[in-house]
Amino acid sequence: MTQEHAEISLTLERLWQFSLQYYSVREVKQACLDLQNQFHGNVNLLLLLKWLDEQQVSFLEEDWHKVEECLGRSEALLHSFRELRRKLKLQAPDTLYRESLQFELQLEKQQQSDLVDCINQLPLIKRSPSELTLPSDEYSTSSLTQRYCRQLGGEHLYHAFSAPAPS
């Protein structure tokens, strides 16, 4: 992997807009839900990793735990609220359910804000496009998205994330 320092301009709004657009692809949405529900993955983290892959940048392997740790503040709250919202869907009026869904989206956006703050504090390195597409078990030659899917045991989901995001 090329160890050249990368300068990126990651803002919450940029990641949020990317996420909304990318998640709107039916295959991507289904793979994200499978990653979350079957493999206990974090969709916001996956979306951030995909954004970084698209920018052809990465963080150092030793910083992986820092990125995952920044989810700690919001993950338990988001998970609990998501469970509550699912129960509401069966029992609450439709308007209350829609309001709970909007609140969950606000929690998702806050989690993305935490991720943006974390990434903007890490040294990032440039990667060549060929480094992001090699079918290897080595961290240095797999995309961040692929590595995350593999780490969760859901590597077969990676095919849904391997295509470039729609522009």
Rank of each mutant, 00 (worst) to 15 (best):
S100Q: 09
L20H: 00
V43L: 03
K87S: 06
K87T: 09
L10Q: 12
L78S: 02
W51S: 04
E54K: 14
S24M: 07
K29T: 04
N120L: 13
E83S: 13
E27F: 00
E62T: 08
W16L: 09
T133F: 10
L115F: 02
N37V: 09
Y23N: 13
R26D: 15
H65C: 02
E69I: 10
V28P: 05
Y23I: 05
L101I: 13
E108C: 07
R85A: 06
E104N: 01
K50Q: 04
D53N: 11
N42R: 02
L84S: 11
Q110M: 09
E62I: 13
N37D: 15
L47V: 00
E104K: 01
W64I: 07
S74N: 11
E83P: 03
V67T: 11
S58L: 07
L124Y: 03
F81W: 12
R73G: 09
L122Q: 07
Q17W: 05
L77E: 03
Q21D: 06
S58E: 05
S74V: 01
R98Q: 15
L35P: 05
Q102S: 12
L52I: 09
Q56R: 08
W64Q: 06
Q55T: 10
Q30F: 02
Q121F: 13
L10A: 14
L88H: 04
S100G: 13
R14Y: 02
H79E: 05
S58I: 11
E108T: 01
E99D: 15
R98T: 13
E75I: 12
Y23V: 01
L84E: 11
E83L: 14
Q30L: 12
L35N: 02
N42D: 12
K29L: 02
H40Q: 12
L48R: 01
K50I: 00
L33G: 04
H40E: 12
D114C: 07
I125S: 06
L107G: 00
E99Y: 14
V57M: 06
C118W: 09
S113K: 15
E54P: 05
